[in-house]
Amino acid sequence: MAQITAALVKQLREKTGAGMMDAKKALVENDGDEDAAIEWLRAKGLSKAAKKSGRTAADGLVAVQVSADGKSGAIVELNAETDFVARNEGFQKALSGIAKAALETDGSLEALAAAPAPDGQGSVDDMIKRMIATIGENMTLRRSAKVSADKVASYIHNAETAGMGKVGVLVALSGSGDLEDIGRKIAMHIAATSPAAATTAELDPNLVETEKRVLTEQARESGKPDNIIEGMIKGRMQKFFKEVVLLEQPFVMNPDQTVAEYLKGEGATLNGFVHFKLGEGIEKAADNFADEVASLTKGS
Rank of each mutant, 00 (worst) to 15 (best):
L263K: 01
G73L: 09
L246D: 00
E211V: 04
E104W: 01
T5G: 08
K51S: 12
E14I: 05
L103T: 05
D226M: 13
A198Y: 02
S123C: 11
K166L: 09
G168H: 09
A201W: 02
I282A: 08
T193Y: 00
E137W: 02
E39W: 05
D126C: 12
E89I: 08
G223W: 08
L112W: 03
A94P: 01
K277N: 00
G175Q: 05
E202N: 09
V124R: 02
S300P: 01
D83T: 09
S108W: 05
A63G: 06
K93H: 03
V62R: 05
T258R: 02
L270A: 06
A86C: 12
D181H: 11
F84R: 10
A80L: 04
V259H: 03
I135R: 05
L109T: 08
Q238L: 12
T200P: 03
Q249S: 08
M164R: 12
D178Q: 07
P195D: 01
R13C: 07
M139E: 02
E137G: 07
A286M: 07
L296C: 08
F91I: 08
V62P: 06
L109G: 04
V85M: 11
A290Y: 06
N138M: 07
K151N: 07
D291I: 02
D256L: 04
L95F: 07
A192Y: 00
D106I: 11
P205R: 06
T216N: 13
S72A: 13
D226R: 13
G17L: 05
M131V: 08
S53C: 07
E283P: 03
I182N: 09
G231P: 06
E211Y: 07
E137S: 09
N271M: 11
A191I: 01
K212A: 14
V171Q: 01
A26N: 10
G70N: 11
D126H: 04
S176F: 06
G279I: 11
K52E: 12
P250F: 06
A37G: 09
G272R: 11
Q257R: 13
M164W: 07
V171I: 13
Q218A: 15
M20F: 10
G136L: 03
E14N: 14
A113M: 08
D33Y: 11
A114L: 10
E243W: 01
A7R: 06
S53W: 15
T297N: 07
L203R: 03
S300Y: 11
A80F: 01
G60D: 06
S154R: 06
D31A: 13
V9F: 07
A149W: 04
V152K: 01
A2F: 05
V293I: 15
T56D: 15
N254V: 09
A58C: 13
P195T: 00
L46F: 00
L61F: 14
A192C: 05
E202G: 04
E292S: 14
G73Y: 11
A50P: 02
G60K: 03
A36S: 10
G60I: 10
